[in-house]
Simulated assay, not measured.
Amino acid sequence: MVIEVIRIGQRLVRDDRVTTHVALVSRAFGAERIFMSEVNPEIKDTVEKINKTWGGKFEIDFIDKWKSVVKKKKEENFKIIHLSMYGQNINIIQEELRKEENLLIVVGAEKVPREIYELADYNVGVGSQPHSEISALAILLDRIQKGKQFEKDFPDAKRKIIPTKNGKNVQVKETRD
């Protein structure tokens, strides 16, 4: 399964941290790429540093127009999932989503254009109360993959967290720089 994410919109100043977390959750929960518009370019630097230290090849692509990316992905046989509080409940639709091979997940910031609801193959909600788009993305990615995204190691990692009952254990790979 190929999973990519597109972040549409950004509330100025407030969303730098939120958008960074959308990217980090996308990366940590198994997506391969995120498309972003209207964002602080430092977010890409942050994620590249995370990749360098913690491994992986997660990519950030800056875009001008979200609609052209969504339409192109549809042509490439991606199913478009729009995260929305008003969509079908994740508990009802998750089995169907697991059968898809290529997914583009739309994560909005401010009011999402009505057209997204129409372009999406699935409008999915994770609850019926106001909540963070970060939490919705994490829940969706986890439900789609049934936790299997956490069973793989990130390639070229210089650091790896070793799960422990108490304390912290971080394995540091020695490198010659």
Rank of each mutant, 00 (worst) to 15 (best):
E96R: 07
S132W: 03
G56A: 04
E4N: 08
T19M: 05
K44E: 04
N123H: 04
A120I: 01
T53F: 12
K79R: 10
E42D: 05
E48I: 10
R143W: 09
L140F: 07
E4W: 07
D121S: 07
V25S: 03
H131A: 14
K165E: 13
F58Y: 05
I139E: 02
V112M: 12
N40R: 12
S128R: 15
S68M: 14
D16Y: 00
E118A: 15
E42W: 10
V107M: 07
V69R: 14
R33A: 11
F154M: 12
T53K: 11
Q171Y: 15
R143Q: 14
R176N: 12
K79Y: 08
P163T: 06
G167R: 02
D61T: 15
E96H: 04
I161P: 00
G167Y: 06
D142T: 11
G125H: 07
K74E: 01
G167N: 02
D156N: 12
R7V: 11
N166D: 12
V22E: 02
W66Q: 03
I81Q: 04
V112H: 07
I161Y: 08
A120M: 03
H131I: 14
V170W: 04
K65V: 10
R11E: 06
I116T: 06
K148R: 13
V69E: 06
I134M: 04
E32H: 09
K99C: 02
I60Y: 00
Q171T: 07
P155H: 05
W54I: 03
A136Y: 00
E38G: 11
S84R: 01
D61N: 15
K52M: 05
N166Q: 14
I3H: 09
T19N: 09
K57R: 15
E100K: 14
E101F: 00
E48R: 14
Q145A: 08
S132Q: 07
I161F: 09
V13P: 02
G108I: 02
I161L: 12
E75Y: 09
E38D: 14
S132I: 08
Y117S: 08
G56I: 10
S135P: 01
I63V: 05
S84E: 05
T175V: 12
I105Y: 01
D64F: 09
L104Y: 03
E151N: 11
Y117V: 08
K173Q: 12
P130H: 10
I116S: 08
F35H: 02
D61L: 15
G30D: 02
G147M: 05
E32Q: 07
K67S: 02
F150I: 06
F58C: 03
T53N: 10
N77A: 10
K152F: 00
A138F: 01
Y86A: 13
I161V: 10
V106P: 00
L12Q: 14
